[in-house]
């Protein structure tokens, strides 16, 4: 969109590409490669959802402070992925959604995924990861009231989203490998990823249990002091 001078044309294209081009591409792909239709459809939908959201981000009024806070949390997520065992991405995304709103939560989750994959390995799974983490942040924003009230509920939510994230990524692994979602293969993928899934859920739970309060307090203080 950089070459186009007219801003109106640019705006039209910005909407046309996700709304028309991606479904067309998916349809063409399905026609050409019938064996891979599930993969194509899922990838197309993921990319479409992301592009729609991220383009919309520009239209909504986002204050510079909220943007900086989002950038700060994204960077903390990426820096935190270097810590062995504990991966704070999901937990921080949940906190961002709770304290800064669902949209910021989505942004934090999605961007943490794509940026940290530049350090940890980019792949065709990136759009799914972005979507999964983004949804976790968005839903935390919706559920912010009960989650803020109960520490136990929050920790449980962390465990649940951690496990759900892992299971969803397994679906995608199987889709990528095989032409459809075959139960045996999925089962073996889940079993193979079991230690990872368990560790992931528990680390989320621990992280939220230990850090939700202090980090929440800090976010509240910044919001209050500087009026975000």
């Amino acid at each position: 969109m950089i070459l186009i001078k007219s801003s109106r044309l640019r705006a039209v294209l910005r909407w046309l590409i996700p709304l028309a081009a991606i479904p067309l591409l998916v349809a063409a792909g399905v026609a050409l490669f019938p064996q891979k239709q599930h993969l194509l459809v899922s990838l197309g939908v993921a990319v479409l959802a992301l592009v729609l959201f991220l383009c919309g981000f520009e239209r909504r009024q986002t204050g510079s402070r909220r943007m900086v806070l989002a950038a700060v949390i994204i960077a903390l997520c990426i820096a935190g992925r270097f810590i062995p065992l504990v991966k704070p991405v999901t937990a921080l995304t949940i906190l961002a959604g709770m304290y800064l709103g669902g949209e910021t939560g989505f942004l934090v989750g999605a961007l943490s995924a794509v940026l940290s994959n530049f350090y940890f390995g980019q792949g065709p799974w990136t759009p799914f990861q972005m979507l999964a983490w983004g949804m976790i942040g968005l839903s935390a924003g919706w559920l912010c009231r009960p989650l803020k009230k109960s520490r136990l509920l929050l920790a449980f939510y962390g465990l649940l989203t951690g496990v759900a994230y892992s299971l969803m990524m397994d679906v995608w692994t199987v889709l990528w490998y095989d032409s459809g979602l075959r139960w045996e293969l999925y089962r073996s993928a889940v079993v193979a990823a079991l230690p990872h899934t368990a560790l992931y859920g528990v680390s989320n739970l621990l992280f939220l249990w230990l850090l939700a309060k202090p980090v929440g307090r800090k976010l509240d203080r910044v919001k209050l002091k500087y009026g975000v």
């Binding site: 943007m67 900086v68 989002a70 950038a71 700060v72 994204i74 960077a75 990426i78 820096a79 942004l107 961007l111 940026l115």
Partner: peptide
């Protein structure tokens, strides 16, 4: 946002 995060 990305540029800031990359800097941080």
């Amino acid at each position: 946002v990305i540029s800031m995060a990359l800097r941080y």
